[in-house]
Design a protein around this nucleic acid. Structure first.
Lengths: 227, 227, 227, 227
DNA sequence: GATGAATGAGGTTTCATTCAT
DNA sequence: AATGAATGAAACCTCATTCAT
């Protein structure tokens, strides 16, 4: 019970990696991977350049840690949610996506998606890591929900591998939009409205023939609002 | 007919800028702006580092020339097409977008969009140039078509400034998709099908109340194919 | 007494800027501004190229620091000496010039004068800095002594602005001579003799009509030695 | 008599070297040796870079040609004048110096002196050339006049090797002054007055004991004007 | 003779990484 | 554990010189 009572400097010490990860996430998202200088990361975290190397082997290792902390970890939570689920697959999909948005999409972590899109070609090792830890697990999760829904007769019989990108793409795009400043487009979408609209429409499309319309498929009444 | 018979090296000279622009476009799109080394551009064009500086003042100048050559020029053509148009605004919009896709979206130039999204924050001068020469002119063009359509009663009364990003965003996203290799998503969309579907749907939405359904608004018969 | 006992590398750190300034002064004077390579400066100071950039932003900054350290600082001291002076203006002028010679003219710093004369046209920013920090302050100092002497009736009524270059030019020339190796002229003047002769003659010329001849105006007895 | 009637382009051709030398002198004096780009020399002469290499082997060769054309040649003329002289040595010295000033000191060629002072250390081959062709011949000429004057009893018995730099230094300094823009000093001396004063004073000093005062030693009546 | 396109060594500057303290 | 001085590879850019036409 005394376990976490420590002198202040020691608590400080334990907090170091998190402070570094937060600083690194900020700068990576703001400037990109290559353009982020480790000295700036260290300074923003209030430590010296050398200290950073006490916690992370090198720049790549730091970046991987940022991805693990801000993306892979929530993804793991989503996988657990999926494993524990026992309700209707439409509700499950809705829940997973909304939680994902809250934990990742709405945070600075979303900027990682844009960053990887742009720079992955130059850093093969990072690309491999990202594909294995994020892309494939994320895709598998969505495909898993689809498979579950089809197997339980809650979704019409679609090919999960084909439908999966149709569901993931809008989420990715929304993440990019929300973290692009100038030259993407001034198109300031309202993320919650976009998500609601998109989910409503996608789930309507997944309703098996003969299943009753309305909840849990359709959440929005009447005609969708013209965005 | 002797007019264009020149000594070999002079013919080379005329071709050099285009060869360099092509090499630069390749590498900028492949690696990003900052990560592209001018020596590599030169080597890919088959010349030495110094030669590049005979034709372009510096890296920034080279990049601007690439953008002008591969994006601004087609945009200017689209502006002329718009000025010359005398048909129905729905057909005009369709024509402009499809030509844009052929001239830019389907070429490597589309990669520039992704690049600017990711790196614009680090290169203010490039951002300003890109905003003025590409973003603003492109936006003005789409808004112009909308204004024309509304004025001629061919589109329902929408606010062009509000509707404009709704039309441009899907095009931008498609360009990004088609030029992102690994970690965007394996989601390999069929660009022509995507464009047809998107245009069909967007124009249906712009049909004024009371105007006859079908052409020129709807081009695809019956229910849209499940993307 | 323990105050200045520091770890060895920290003592090094404090000494670094001075070591670098000394090396830079050597090389700037030896080769000129443009022809001095920073790598050589670093090597002469016993450090690597990158280390230099820990202490100075760039070449220009390094040069300015050299000028400040070796010229502006002694000039500031001379200004203080002038402000504190309470004796005869002839003695003041003699003292200021002899100290200037010891602190600057007889050191490698004198080479800076030659360097600026030759290269100032190519480096406008350096020229501005040098004019403001050296030329103008130096001229003002000499003019100030003249004004003081005239006001106190210790010099005949001369226009300080007109007489000032007459006094500064021989000093400048001597500095150039003493730091020009080959093709100025083999004319090896004896600096102390030159200074004594010049001062003696200049002060004789400044003696007001009616003032007693001899000290403090004339310091050298009888006919000047044939140089 | 038809000898110099040539087609225009051929006269042009013969003029090329002179045009290049003039352009090179301008730029060398303006920017220094190292900072002068051969492309700029060629452009100022109205030819292409390659053409320059038809007339001069390389930069060094061009510089030597400039020195020969603008300094060595007048020096050779002075040597002939000296050989032909039969008048009083005081008049001879006066004549030689004034002609030197008109042919060299008052022209842009005077800037070469400043340039060599500053950059000679970096270009040993140029230094050797300059020492042999200019410094030594010039010194020999002045020493020759002194020797002649002493031998003919027109100058008091001085050691020519000792007196020589006393005579050459003021001339050199005047050349430097007249071609230094900013950071030498604003001291704008009047060259003709400086020369007259200097010659008058120097020749007075060379008058043998017992020789009549006045011409040809003193040229200026009464007290020298306060410079 | 004349051209000017092409070259590539060499300079300044940046920054990930190391290591003595 | 923490520091921050030091390193050196690598990038951009310049310019004397060459050479095919």
């Amino acid at each position: 019970m005394q376990a976490d009572i420590k002198p202040r400097w020691e608590r400080r010490k334990d907090a170091r990696p998190q402070e570094l990860l937060a600083a690194a996430l900020d700068l990576f998202v703001e400037r990109g991977y290559a353009a982020t200088r480790l000295e700036d990361v260290a300074r923003r975290a209030g430590v010296s350049k050398g200290t950073l190397y006490l916690y992370f082997e090198n720049k790549e290792d730091l970046f991987k840690a940022v991805v693990r902390d801000s993306i892979v970890q929530p993804l793991g939570q989503a996988e657990l949610d999926f494993a524990d689920a026992d309700g209707h697959s439409a509700d499950l999909l809705r829940t997973l996506l909304m939680r994902w948005w809250d934990k990742v999409g709405a945070t600075r972590a979303a900027g990682i998606v844009k960053l990887m899109m742009a720079e992955s070609g130059n850093f093969p090792e990072l690309t491999q890591f990202y594909n294995e830890e994020v892309i494939e697990r994320g895709n598998a999760l969505i495909a898993g929900v689809l498979t579950r829904g089809v197997a339980r007769g809650e979704f019409r019989p679609v090919d999960p591998a084909v439908m999966m990108p149709v569901l993931s793409a809008p989420i990715l795009m929304l993440m990019i939009w929300c973290h692009s400043s100038s030259p993407c487009l001034g198109a300031r979408v309202d993320p919650r409205l976009f998500l609601a609209t998109f989910l409503d429409n996608a789930l309507r499309g997944l309703r098996p023939d003969g299943a009753p319309e309305g909840a849990p498929y359709a959440a929005l009444p009447g005609p969708l609002p013209e965005k």
